[in-house]
Design a protein around this nucleic acid. Structure first.
Length: 423
RNA sequence: GGAGAAAUGGCAGAGUGGUCGAUUGCGGCAGUCUUGAAAACUGUUGAGGGUAACACCUCCGGGGGUUCGAAUCCCUCUUUCUCCGCCA
C-alpha cells in the first residue's frame, strides 16, 4: 500500500510511473489527496472538541473534590453538547478513513525506473541468458509423456482423488521431487538464509499484509468455516512472521527460506499451456524472503538474482532472465526479475522463479518498521523470490536430460536422489 | 468440547474511576571514569495522528457500552495459561 504523504509529495512522478502499468492513476491520486485533506480537517475538529471536553472533565473533577457540586453539575450539562458533537465527528472520521483505505487498496506499487513500459509478457525485457540448449532427438518427449513412460507422475490419479491440477508423484518422480526440495533448501541455508517451517493456511490479516487481499481474493482457496486461506506461496506466512514488528537496524537484513506447497485456484486459465506440470493447483516451492534496509534493497535484489543463477548453473539448465514490464509486473512489486528455463521438448520458456523488490509497499500494510541509526522509525523494504519452484524445474530436467533410452539425473542431485538415471 | 485465570511500552512487571501515557527493573542510546573495553555511576529512552515548530488528539489484546471522566467498571470477540475430556 502506498503512503499518502508520498502520494502528496510525488503526485506527478507517481502518476507517470503508474502509467507504465497502463494505469491512468491521476484521478485516483487526486481523490486520495482530497479525501486525506478531509480526513485531516475532520480529525482536527474532533481533536478540538475532545480537548474541550477533557478540560471540562478535569474541572469537574476538581470541583467535586472541593465540594462545589452545583457548579460541577452546571459544567456537566455543557459537556453533553460536546459529546454529541464528538460522536458525530468520530463517525464522519471513520467513514473518511475507511473510504481512503479502500481507495489506497486499489493502487498498485510504483514501478522502479528500470521497469520498461509495456502491456503484457511480450514487452518484458530479456536481460540475461546462459546455458546451452541441448539438441535432442527428433522424437523427444514433453515431460507429461516422459512422466507416463517412466511412471513418475500420475495425473489421472490426482484427478480421481482431488481434481485436475493436483498431480500424484510416484517412485523416482517423488524422490526426485524431494531431492530438489532438500537441495534448494541446502543451497539457500548455505547462502545464509534461515530455514523456516510455517503453516500452510493463514488468516485474513496475513492475506492483507502481503497484498493477496483484497486484490487476489479469488485466487486463493478459502476455508469459510474457519476464515482461513490456503497459502498461494510461502511469501505470505513467512513475510507475515514480521507483521507489526519494530526491528533494530542491527537486526537487518532478516533472511528466511522455507519450503511449502502452494495452492492456487488459477481461475480462468486454460489451454495447451496448462498441460502437465506447466500450471497446477498445488505445487511445491522453496522461497527466499529478505527484510532489508531501504538503502540496501536493490543491492539485495541483485544478490538474490545471482543466488538463483548459481543454482541453475549447477543444475546445468539453459535459462534466461526477464525484467518484467509495467503491464506484467505484479500488483505489489516495484521491480521483478523472472527466471525462465528453456524446455526443448516443448520448445518454450517455462517460468521457474520470480524475484521481486516490494520496497515499502508490503511493509506499509504489515506495519513492519525498523529503528534507523538516527533513532527514527522507518518502513523496511521486503523482497522475495522463488529458489526455486519445483514443477517446472522438474519438467525442465526431465525434458532436457532425456535420451532415447533414459533420463539422466543432474550431477548435483545424485547424492540427494541416490540414483543417477531414470529408466 | 467443558471449567477457571490472564492479556499493560523492545522485554519483564506494578498500577482497580480523576495531573496515569502509565512506578520500577532489564535492554537501547548519550555522558563521566578508562590508553581502549568491561564494571560502576549520571542522564535519556513507547507508538500513531497533527503542526513550519509548538499546541493538541488517540493508543494499556480487538470491538462496543456505562460515566463529566476508564488501563481500572460492564458486554462481546480473540489469544495465552491451568484443570478436565478427546486425540495424531
Amino acid at each position: 500500500m502506498l503512503q499518502v504523504n508520498n502520494i502528496r509529495d510525488h503526485k506527478e512522478a507517481y502518476s507517470k510511473a503508474l502509467a507504465k502499468r497502463g494505469l491512468n492513476a491521476q484521478p485516483i491520486l487526486e481523490e486520495v489527496i482530497q479525501i486525506d485533506e478531509l480526513r485531516r480537517s475532520t480529525q482536527a475538529q474532533l481533536d478540538d472538541t475532545l480537548s474541550q471536553s477533557n478540560i471540562f472533565s478535569k474541572e469537574i473533577g476538581l470541583l467535586f473534590k472541593n465540594g462545589e457540586t452545583q457548579k460541577a453539575d452546571l459544567l456537566k450539562e455543557k459537556t453533553s453538547e460536546l459529546k454529541d458533537r464528538s460522536k458525530l465527528l468520530q463517525e464522519q472520521l471513520n467513514d473518511t478513513v475507511e473510504k481512503l483505505q479502500q481507495l489506497l487498496y486499489t493502487l498498485p506499487n510504483i514501478p522502479n525506473e528500470l521497469v520498461p513500459a509495456g502491456t503484457d509478457e511480450n514487452d518484458n525485457e530479456v536481460v540475461f541468458a546462459e546455458g546451452t540448449v541441448p539438441t535432442l532427438e527428433k522424437d523427444a518427449l514433453p515431460h507429461w509423456e516422459l512422466a507416463k513412460k517412466y511412471d513418475l507422475i500420475d495425473f489421472e490419479l490426482g484427478v480421481k482423488i482431488t481434481g485436475a491440477g493436483f498431480p500424484v508423484y510416484k517412485g523416482k518422480g517423488a524422490k526426485l521431487q524431494r531431492a530438489l526440495i532438500t537441495y534448494f533448501l541446502d543451497k539457500n541455508t548455505a547462502a545464509g538464509y534461515t530455514e523456516y517451517q510455517v503453516p500452510h493456511v493463514v488468516n485474513e490479516a496475513s492475506g492483507y499484509g502481503t497484498g493477496q487481499l483484497p486484490d487476489k481474493e479469488g485466487q486463493m482457496y478459502y476455508i469459510g468455516e474457519d476464515n482461513l486461506y490456503l497459502i498461494p506461496t510461502a511469501e505470505v506466512p513467512v513475510t507475515n512472521l514480521f507483521r507489526d514488528d519494530l526491528l533494530a537496524h542491527t537486526q537487518l537484513p532478516v533472511t528466511c527460506t522455507a519450503y511449502t506447497p502452494c495452492f492456487r485456484r488459477e481461475a480462468g486459465s486454460y489451454g495447451a499451456h496448462v498441460r502437465g506440470l506447466n500450471r497446477l493447483h498445488q505445487f511445491d516451492k522453496v522461497e527466499i524472503v529478505r527484510i532489508e534496509h531501504p538503502d540496501k534493497s536493490y543491492e539485495a535484489l541483485n544478490g538474490m538474482v545471482e543466488h538463483v543463477k548459481g543454482i541453475l548453473r549447477e543444475l546445468k539448465l539453459p535459462y534466461r532472465i526477464l525484467r518484467l514490464c509495467g503491464g506484467d509486473l505484479g500488483f505489489t512489486s516495484a521491480l521483478t526479475y523472472d527466471f525462465e528455463v528453456f524446455s526443448t521438448a516443448q520448445d518454450r520458456w517455462l517460468e521457474i522463479s520470480s524475484v521481486s523488490n516490494f520496497e515499502t509497499f508490503q511493509a506499509n500494510r504489515l506495519k513492519l518498521r525498523f529503528k534507523d541509526v538516527d533513532g527514527k522509525n522507518k518502513l523496511v523494504h521486503t523482497l522475495n523470490g522463488s529458489s526455486l519452484a519445483l514443477p517446472r524445474v522438474l519438467a525442465g530436467i526431465l525434458e532436457n536430460y532425456q535420451t532415447p533410452e533414459d533420463i539422466k539425473v543432474p550431477e548435483v542431485l545424485i547424492p540427494y536422489c541416490g540414483f543417477d538415471i531414470i529408466n
